[in-house]
């Protein structure tokens, strides 16, 4: 029963109102209840769901039923359009600094995938844009975090700047940028330690790193399996650091990924890339429409409309 897609959920309601000329308020009410459930099951934050459903309702009521679509299909269409729009257009671009190196900072909760994604991003920059990135090991807390980044650097043949675990992350970041200038590396990707958004001291450290190296991008790395808490995390990181974008990891799992919608809704910052596996070439461009379908638990629009 749990985790059925929105189209399955709407089947029954749709049967009842098939063939009507207009979507009535009652129809919309019934259907928005189902929309609400589908989104909550997909882990979209309940506050975000509330606002979203309200908007859908306003848009759907009183709409003429298009000839080719049943009222149910039409509501789904509205939901998906709204969702896709909310999730943003194609924004999978990475900043380029006027004067190299371009500095990228990776931030996020513990275990989200920052270090792995640092390697993936460097790989993508080289492959797709012919860039030369340097990786900076600014996680001095997690046991063997530096080993991890150095191993990744070796696997991909990228230089890694590290100063051991006694150094200050602010200093590591600064020196990494200097190093990149000297060696004519055009990107620096700074891997930072995972931390809780409520950890004042460690969040302050990120603020100091930011101040010291003035990054062109600050990417919040978020696990796609995150539940209701995603809004607190994203809001808090954004407030304290003014992030420039979001990287969603572990989307190769079977999670619906409603966190994507929550984060976009509360920060307004674009989701740029998605992690699709543990391997270092498994980073893909973010597609809002695909994500919308995934959250709603449906295949593409066509199969859905055929079914309805």
């Amino acid at each position: 029963m749990a985790f059925e897609g929105l189209s399955d959920r709407l089947q029954e309601t749709i049967q009842k109102i098939k063939g009507k000329g207009k979507v009535t308020e009652q129809d919309v009410k019934e259907m928005s209840r189902e929309v609400r459930l589908a989104l909550l099951e997909a882990d979209v934050n309940f506050k975000v769901v509330k606002d979203f459903v309200k908007r859908i309702r306003e848009r759907a009521i009183g709409q003429e039923v298009m000839e080719s679509l049943t009222p149910g299909q039409q509501v789904i269409k509205v939901v998906k359009e709204e969702l896709t729009e909310l999730m943003g257009g194609d924004e999978s671009k990475i900043a380029v600094a006027k004067k190299p190196p371009t500095v990228i900072m990776m931030v996020g909760l513990q275990g989200a995938g920052k270090t792995t994604t640092t390697g993936k991003l460097a790989n993508l920059l080289r492959k797709s844009y012919n860039r030369k990135p340097l990786l900076a090991a600014a996680d001095v807390y997690r046991p063997a975090a530096i080993d991890q980044l150095e191993t990744i650097g070796k696997q991909l043949d990228f230089p890694v700047h590290s100063q051991g675990t006694e150094a200050d992350p602010v200093d590591i970041a600064k020196q990494a940028v200097e190093q990149a200038k000297e060696d004519h590396q055009d990107y620096v990707i700074i891997d930072t330690a995972g931390r809780l958004h409520i950890d004042g001291e460690l969040m302050g450290e990120l603020g100091r790193v930011k101040e010291a190296v003035n990054p062109d991008e600050i990417f919040l790395v978020v696990d796609a399996m995150t539940g209701q808490d995603a809004v607190n995390v994203a809001e808090s990181f954004d407030e304290q650091l003014d992030i420039s974008g979001v990287l969603l990891t572990k989307l190769d799992g079977d999670t619906r990924g409603g966190a994507a919608l929550s984060i976009k809704a509360v920060t307004g910052k674009p989701i740029k890339f998605v992690g699709m596996g543990e391997k270092l070439d498994e980073l893909e461009v973010f597609h809002p429409e695909r994500m919308a379908s995934r959250i709603l638990g449906m295949g593409d629009m066509l199969t859905l409309i055929e079914k309805a």
Binding site: M225, G227, T255, R256
Partner: peptide, 8 residues
């Protein structure tokens, strides 16, 4: 992970 939602 306590941060995980329904996928757990």
């Amino acid at each position: 992970d306590a941060t995980t939602g329904q996928n757990a």
